[in-house]
Amino acid sequence: MGDTGPATSPLTSAFAAGRPALVAYVMAGYPDRATSLASLRAAARGGADVIELGVPYGDPVADGPVIAEAASVARQQEGGFGLVHSLQVAKAFAQGLGAGKPPPLVVMTYLNPLMRLGLPAAASTMRGAGVHGVIIPDMPPEAAAPWLGVAEGIDTVFLAAPTSTDERLAVVGGASRGFVYCVSATGVTGERVHLALGLAEQVARVKAHTALPVAVGFGVSTPESAAQVAAFADGVIVGSAIVKRQGDPAEVERFVRSLARAVHGEP
């Protein structure tokens, strides 16, 4: 792929407003389909620059208890709730409410739901839903060729971990499109009391291997910690702390607004 690819993608551009960006994670279908769509819209109104939409899955090996439990609740709806339903929610969100263009949407899904649907069908459904990017936490770059072969038009975001060597950061940075997802700590998603020591250095190390924006996730749960991360990262990803509030979209909007102010450096 040429140099123009990543630079011109709408997802990359969402980080180019001259200030750090907030990426807000919402679990599709939790606690039900309509409320999750309302929470997506609430997160957009609250000022999220990018929306990450989680797909409920039965073995979420990278996720902590909050997101795992939300996925479990979502899946228990009548008829189940998986990738296809999540992309319907994404489509409804992308079509917007008329007022302004919604922020770009990235789908976070494990690999097997994509395989079950069939990779080409999954990619074309995503494109049809107006999805800009995808994060597949159990698909490292070495295993990505079959997906990347059919995923044209969708930015595939790869993860950089605290354990990644420089050699691997080069692989991750080279394979990523849209942005690079920097995992702040070993372990699963979820709120942590303290940010990992050395996080700023880790982000600097990731940035040395990519021209793309670097967003930090796992463990960021308050406006205070979000502001700390925004001091050295291009983007801040907040998940579990938003998912916990998803039963009440108005509360999601209020919370996302407080995060956005902190990340954007507004008073």
Partner: peptide, 20 residues
């Protein structure tokens, strides 16, 4: 070399454990 038996096997895990 990548741990595939025909199409099966491989390494489908979070990046955190790939170096390990």
């Amino acid at each position: 070399a990548q741990g595939f038996y025909g199409p099966y096997g491989g390494t489908f895990v979070p990046e955190t454990v790939v170096p390990a």
